[in-house]
């Protein structure tokens, strides 16, 4: 069965996600316009600047189509993608795509000088995964349907809710593609 996964291509670490997904054997497409969603089995929302991405989603009328796409297909959001997927963002009026029952804090570890990398245990993925955190958010708390996949210093940094997957760090910035393979398996299982 051939699997086709899209990477939202408005801004940010797009090509790194493309390389990571290609290593799973999936066909990969960059999504800049509504018509690019057609025929996709799953979507990755990459890291970048969440404020910028939201603005561009609105400008191109991609916001509602992606919400609709997400009701029928798996979505994986990393860093800025996590913020876009959250139902609640601390100190902010409304959410963005509001796909996952999670409450998040932006730039939660501090500014760039506090950005770091650390080894993580990710349930079902790896117990030695190098997480690269860049002005990263974390999840303050999750709803009952959300499965916490990884915790770093008491902070939730990866989670899954049904066909939605998210993490606060950047799995696309290392050569370790196990998290992307996990998402590929999710997409494949969902399609079957």
């Amino acid at each position: 069965m051939s699997i086709k996964i899209g990477v939202l291509g408005l801004q940010g670490a797009i090509r790194e996600h493309v390389w990571a997904l290609e290593s799973t054997g999936a066909e990969v497409a960059i999504v800049k316009k509504i018509e690019h969603l057609e025929g996709l089995d799953g979507l990755v929302i990459p890291g970048g600047e969440s404020t910028t991405m939201r603005r561009l989603l609105d400008q191109y009328g991609l916001f509602e189509p992606i919400k609709a796409f997400a009701q029928q297909h798996p979505v994986f959001g990393t860093c800025a993608g996590l913020i876009l997927m959250a139902q609640q963002i601390e100190g902010q009026k409304g959410p963005h795509l509001a796909l996952m029952d999670i409450n998040v804090r932006r730039n939660a570890f501090g500014r760039q000088v506090a950005s770091f990398e650390a080894e993580l245990v990710i349930e079902g993925v790896a117990d030695d995964f190098m997480g690269v955190f860049i002005r990263a958010p974390y999840i303050l708390n999750v709803g009952q349907d959300v499965q916490v996949l990884s915790v770093y210093e008491d902070k939730i940094v990866a989670a899954r809710q049904g066909h939605f997957l998210t993490c606060a760090f950047h799995p696309e910035l290392t050569n370790d593609y196990r998290f992307h393979h996990y998402f590929y398996d999710m997409v494949r299982a969902y399609k079957e």
């Binding site: 291509g9 940010g12 890291g47 970048g48 600047e49 950005s115 910035l173």
Partner: peptide
């Protein structure tokens, strides 16, 4: 990586 996030 910080600069990678600024791409585009």
């Amino acid at each position: 990586g910080m600069a990678e996030m600024q791409k585009g």
